[in-house]
Write a protein that binds this DNA or RNA. Sequence first.
RNA 1: GGAGAGGUGGCAGAGUGGUCUAAUGCGCGGGUUUGCUAAACCCGUGAGCCUGUAACUGGGCUCCGCAGGUUCGAAUCCUGUCCUCUCCGCCA
Length: 425
Amino acid sequence: MLDRKFIVENAELVKQNCRNRGVAADIDRFVALENERRLLQVEVEELNRKANEVSKSIGKAKDAGEREARKEEGRMLRERTNEVRTKLDELAAELDGIHRSIPNLSHPDAPVGEDDKSNLEVARGKTPLPKFDFEPLDHVALGERLDLIDFEGGARVAGHGFYFLKNEAVLLELALQRYALGVLMAEGFTPMTTPDLATNEVLEGTGYIPRGPETQIYSIENQNLSLVATAEITLGGLLAGQTVDADALPLKLCGISHCFRTEAGAHGKESRGLFRVHQFTKVEMFAFTLPDDSEAMLGHLRDLECRLFDGLEIPYRVVDTATGDLGGPAYRKFDLEAWLPGRGGFGEVTSTSNCTDYQARRLNARFKVKGEKGTRFVHTLNGTAVAISRALIAVLENYQQADGSVVVPEVLQAVVGKERIEPRS
RNA sequence: GGAGAGGUGGCAGAGUGGUCUAAUGCGCGGGUUUGCUAAACCCGUGAGCCUGUAACUGGGCUCCGCAGGUUCGAAUCCUGUCCUCUCCGCCA
């Protein structure tokens, strides 16, 4: 969420930002309601002040008659307060609805455009695009030939979008996790395994919508819990309602979780194979920083994503995400798109965002500087280290050989325990 | 899942309808004393929001897990709910 006062004082800027992002939010109405809300709040507080005064005077009343008269006065005041407060609550509810729909501001350098066609390529990985002297297969065909993925079994058990990993694919998953943790721990990230469920308040705080027709989220019946779509949710929730000492920042965490996504409305185009699935495992980076440090931290997370894929020797490009393609909480976002020979194009494998204080305000995550009065909101950032399903696609497709085998990336060989995955006889 | 106990400031912990403007201790900040340090003593010490003045000193509302209720008035009484702890059951 943006600061209410900021929206009122910068209505034009906020409106323009909504236009850039393709978000319809009635800023004019928000400003009008907010101004009215403040007047009502002053009125309620004034009535409360009077009622408190009256209540205090009752204990000191001289006789029963005076006491009764004062009680009556108190009753009237409380009644009036309730009327005004009811109006205030109604106003606040409508205000909140608009407030939640207003996206974060956008970094001035982020490309302006309505969708991913406006994303701007800003860098390339170290590894050149592979040249095959044979027709490369996609990961579905490779997975079948090497007996690595069972989509039919997954569908039988849980429906389309679920799968079993088998054999070396399992070891690849572990190796990718171990590899990512190794790189991140050396950079001072605290490794964590995280809950795969979170309360709906935490989901909303991080900008996810637990229910409704468009939701990406699986919710648990009769419980205030949902399956997480990413450890960003739980790691962000870690500081919900907390105030940390400024000295404790930045906090760099990396969390392993399963990720569950309904992918409502996303069927069709990329629904084949592992690219868009309902469940996958992910190592996620998350950082809480001081406001002045978040921009540098975004660069840090982006560098790490690049290092991880350079280390895997997989070719990729980095794109600066266009305003219309940013999620609500993101101020700026870089996606890393790996070269996927199976489709002959780039596909998003990781993503890192600076959410500035947008999530922190909703989560109420603050920091305090020793000796200074008051508290301020922290900044939050997230970035994918490795999303296993998509990383698997990139590995299998880029490392495939003419004889049908797949070479294991050097950095994964120790955990996988072999240099090459051969077709089964 | 069952039974019991409990959720109060950074922490510990008192507070059973109005003097709670939440005691006290610890911690923390500042000061006095003092070769240095320590001790002792003194003073101070929460957050959010609204609002004020040209500016400074200000003024007010809310917050005792959370949400309701009773009352002129609730940390305190009532209802619901969440969480924590102990014991029991089940269990990787």
